[in-house]
Design a protein around this nucleic acid. Structure first.
Length: 877
DNA sequence: GCACTCACG
DNA sequence: ACGTACGTGAGTGCG
């Protein structure tokens, strides 16, 4: 049974919020739709984020409520609901019905009271509850079980109010919000409060006396003669205001939790409503997100299970798919192979694969074109059966990624759906998840695999057409697909890792950690869990009274940059920093890596080729792209990565300043191009230009600042970001940036152009036409928009650098083969390649590798590569 | 499962 | 006025 979660929405408040947050939109019938649209956007987000089991939208009912009998001016003076909004309520209700969301209203009660009453029922049953509203009044309901979420400017931007949050914001408990209203009133509801008492005074009083009642019980202790007078004079008003502001949690509602179960939306109902309202984007989203419907699922597929691949399928243009028991293809059980040419589909269970020489021959024949989904996984898995595959010209997964990297591609189903085909079940639906995961019967697996092969075959034309339309076919076909084979081989080759070296470092770390731990406990005067930021925060900021520099949304920040600022104030700080550092090495790199060494003494990472938004690779299980290097103590971990053959060595080559060189090229900035052409130290040169001094007069501090500015430029600079990085004021940072941009006008122009292009087209591109869509670039939400703008500046640079090294890898593979070298490419770390090779090949490699990397793409500035070698990865510096 | 922290480029 | 540097993955604590 899944955990229950109740979602209670304040219909009127949200509709108002949406109405005023968005510009007046209309559909083709002239009906205003902005409130419905905002509501729908918010719903989609909430449903996705919260996954509720119960849901209710509560509406206000009637003009007068029980509160009016207390105070007839309640909510007086309010503007009448604009007709442009009123006309939208019917559509809102209709849409909610289509979503299968229960709606409820109760004569003479407000939505707040319905929500309050239901949330108490849920809380009593220990059920997690989320209240969503645009109205801060509801924060009084927050407690352990109830979170109140308030929409901010944009409808999908939501702030969660928990008791901690309320406490942080006002210094009060949620219940005291009512008392605050009692004292200060609420203009929007026309609650009077005590005249002359505002938020500050109210909070001060409540901190002293706890509640309205408390204030009057202790009225003699109230400081300030005037204030006391006002309070005494308006006692009735205060008590009444509090009553008005109090949500009735015992309203006579006729529904309970069991009446508001949420079965999920009926998209067949929702989409027509969207269509009526002309919600194009939402329709597209809904269409894409819609699970395969029963009719589609039921579409007949003809496939046969065979012991041998039929000759009729062993030809050019056939799709194949290797079905595995899970996604970890270095270890997963290989279940079988499906083949399809669109007419005939066959599944061959794995027992027969090795005994099918015809199939093996076909797979290895590069002149026979093959289509597949996730070539890399297939290749790595087949390699374990000593089968090779060549001639792959189509990979559905990579195609979907190139078409739009923002789509989450988990399996063949998601990739197929990206191109409008929903005839493939998700792997999870077939194999289950978590503890219930299991391989089902042969027939089920055979059908699942067959559907994938068939989908691959069917989609080829559509997919290639789409990529060609966007000028991405070359990127896909000449870069990503060949790279998949290379990565598959790198993964399968793996990196030899010396267990003994890791263990030795681990023992050393364990000793140091223990010593530091004892010192920390001694200084703190108690033992506690140093890894718990919560406990550490209490010790440092409450017990030791150190100043709070930064807060996180859940408490005190104890991040390294904060601790560094506290470094001089107490000896414990440096010890904690060291403990963190060594603890990280121990848990992530020593213990973590030891767990990943396979029986062959090697680590086999998985490169994610269809994941990052910029075109970079990522590395998982384990991540070999973030092995320590910056600090010597951690760098020693690299001593454990060694060649896999006797007489071999490790060889590494990295691009120098590749992103800044890409920036120089793409921006065409003359000074930047010049600097690189003349082979100057780029940070020194930048410092000279920004600070208007000669190169020999640049101080280390100036160079450091310039380096940070250069990084900032690449990241899509902001004064705040730079100020944090350099620990200077925002104003100083802004000045640096201004001076930089004045010195490099081409860069300034380029940054502006990138953003402008994104705003116009909705996406940005790299030199090789990789795309990233930026839907938030025109958002009215400052944060979202700013983020998209920085992304528009950064992605073409980071992405082009990724294109370049990928291209280098493809060329490298050919070149090593052509030169007849035994050297093997093992790892890629964004701007560097790591190899192992026989010692006698070193001379050749030192020539060939930089040569290939530097020639990967011709830019207006030279690409520079530095290489090194040694007995372990550590020594390649 | 999320928040926080920290490792890399 | 708004609140952040870009891109990742993994371990730990905690509800």
């Amino acid at each position: 049974m899944t955990k229950q979660k109740v979602l209670l929405l304040d219909g009127n408040s949200l509709a108002y919020r949406a109405f005023f947050a968005l510009p007046l939109l209309t559909n083709d019938q002239g009906v205003h739709t902005n409130a419905v649209y905002g509501f729908a956007m918010m719903l989609e987000k909430i449903l996705k984020d919260e996954q509720p089991t119960h849901m209710l939208v509560a509406w206000d009912a009637g003009k007068t409520t029980f509160r009016h009998s207390t105070y007839k001016e309640y909510k007086g003076g309010r503007q009448k609901t604009p007709p442009e909004l009123s006309e939208q309520f019917p559509y809102l209700r209709k849409m909610l019905d289509a979503y299968n969301i229960r709606q409820y209203e109760l004569e003479s009660f407000e939505a707040d009271d319905i929500i309050g009453t239901l949330s108490r029922e849920a809380a009593a049953g220990g059920v997690e509850t989320v209240v969503i509203t645009g109205d801060k009044d509801l924060t009084q309901l927050a407690d352990e079980a109830v979170t109140v979420q308030i929409t901010r400017k944009g409808m999908t931007d939501i702030e969660a109010y928990t008791p901690d949050h309320v406490k942080e914001k006002y210094g009060l408990t949620p219940e005291q919000i009512i008392d605050m209203k009692g004292l200060m009133g609420d203009a929007s509801d026309n609650i009077p409060g005590v005249p002359g008492v505002g938020e500050k005074t109210a909070i001060k009083l409540l901190k002293q006396f706890g509640s309205v009642e408390g204030v009057y019980n202790g009225i003699d202790e109230v400081s300030g003669k005037k204030l006391k007078e006002k309070l005494v004079e308006n006692e009735e008003l205060a008590r009444m205001s509090k009553a008005l502001a109090t949500i009735n949690t015992e309203s006579p509602i006729e529904i309970g939790l069991s009446d508001i179960t949420y079965p999920g939306p009926d998209m067949e109902q929702v989409i027509p409503v969207f269509r009526e309202l002309n919600f194009r984007t939402l329709i597209e989203k809904a269409d894409g997100a819609q699970p395969a419907t029963e009719t589609e699922e039921a579409e007949e597929i003809r496939f046969t299970v065979a012991e041998k691949a039929p000759e009729s399928l062993l030809k050019s243009g056939t799709a194949f798919h290797v079905e595995l028991s899970d996604e970890f293809y270095h270890t997963a059980d290989i279940l079988g192979v499906a083949l399809s040419d669109g007419k005939e589909t066959v599944y061959i269970p794995s027992d027969h694969l090795k005994a099918d020489p015809q199939l093996a021959k076909w797979l290895a024949d590069d002149s026979s074109e093959k289509l597949t989904v996730d070539a890399k996984a297939s290749l790595a898995a087949l390699a374990r059966l000593e089968l090779e595959a060549d001639g792959i010209v189509f990979d559905l997964l990579l195609a979907a990624y190139i078409a739009n990297p923002s789509v989450s591609l988990t399996d063949a189903s998601s990739a197929a759906r990206e191109f409008g085909f929903s005839g493939v079940s998700e792997d999870q639906a077939i194999y289950g998840k978590g503890a219930k995961r299991a391989v089902p019967d042969l027939e089920t697996v055979a059908e699942h695999a067959s559907r994938k092969a068939l989908a691959v075959h069917r989609l080829r034309e559509t997919v290639e057409g789409r990529l060609k339309e966007n000028n991405q076919f070359e990127l896909y076909r000449e870069l990503e697909i060949p790279l998949a084979t290379i990565l598959g081989r790198m993964e399968a080759t793996g990196v030899k890792t010396e267990r003994g070296i890791l263990e030795e470092i681990g023992e050393d770390l364990a000793g140091k950690l223990e010593a530091i731990e004892e010192q920390i406990y001694a200084l703190a005067g108690q033992t506690f869990n140093i890894n718990s930021t919560k406990q550490l925060g209490v010790i440092l900021f409450e017990e030791m009274g150190l100043p709070v520099i930064k807060k996180t949304k859940t408490g005190y920040s104890t991040a390294a940059d904060v601790l560094e600022k506290l470094s001089g104030r107490h000896e414990i700080i440096d010890l904690i920093l060291e403990y963190r550092q060594l603890g990280k090495l121990q848990s992530t790199y020593i213990e973590g890596l030891l767990k990943e060494i396979h029986a062959d003494g090697k680590i086999h990472t998985y490169y994610q080729q269809a994941l990052t938004q910029t075109g970079r690779l990522s590395s998982t299980n384990p991540n070999l792209q973030n092995i320590p290097v910056r600090i010597e103590e951690g760098r020693k971990i690299r001593k454990a990565f060694v060649p896999s053959e006797p007489g071999w060595v490790m060889f590494a080559a990295d691009y120098s300043q590749i992103e800044l060189r890409v920036l120089a090229h793409m921006s065409g900035d003359e000074k930047l191009i010049d600097a690189f052409r003349e082979g100057e130290d780029i940070h020194t040169r930048t410092a000279g230009d920004v600070f208007h001094v000669e190169a020999q007069d640049v101080t280390p501090d100036m160079r450091r600042a310039a380096k940070a500015v250069n990084f900032g430029i690449v990241y899509g600079i902001s004064d705040y970001g730079l100020s944090q990085n350099l620990n200077i004021t925002r104003k100083e940072a802004a000045e640096f940036i201004d001076r930089y941009l004045a010195s490099f006008p081409g860069v300034k122009q380029y940054m502006e152009d990138s953003v402008a292009e994104a705003k116009e087209k909705g996406f940005v591109t790299t030199l090789m036409n990789r795309r990233r869509y930026l839907p938030d670039i025109n958002s009215r939400n400052f944060n979202l928009r700013s983020f998209a703008e920085r992304t528009a500046m950064n992605t073409p640079i980071q992405g082009t650098a990724a294109d370049i090294i990928k291209k280098a890898m493809v060329e490298m593979d050919k070149r090593l083969e052509r030169e007849g070298l035994q050297a093997r490419m093992l790892l890629q770390v964004h701007d560097e390649l790591i190899f192992e090779c026989p010692e006698e090949e070193l001379g050749k490699l030192a020539e060939v590798v930089p040569d290939v990397m530097e020639a990967a793409l011709e830019l207006d500035v030279p690409l520079m590569v530095e290489s090194a070698y040694g007995p372990s990865w550590y020594d390649t510096k």
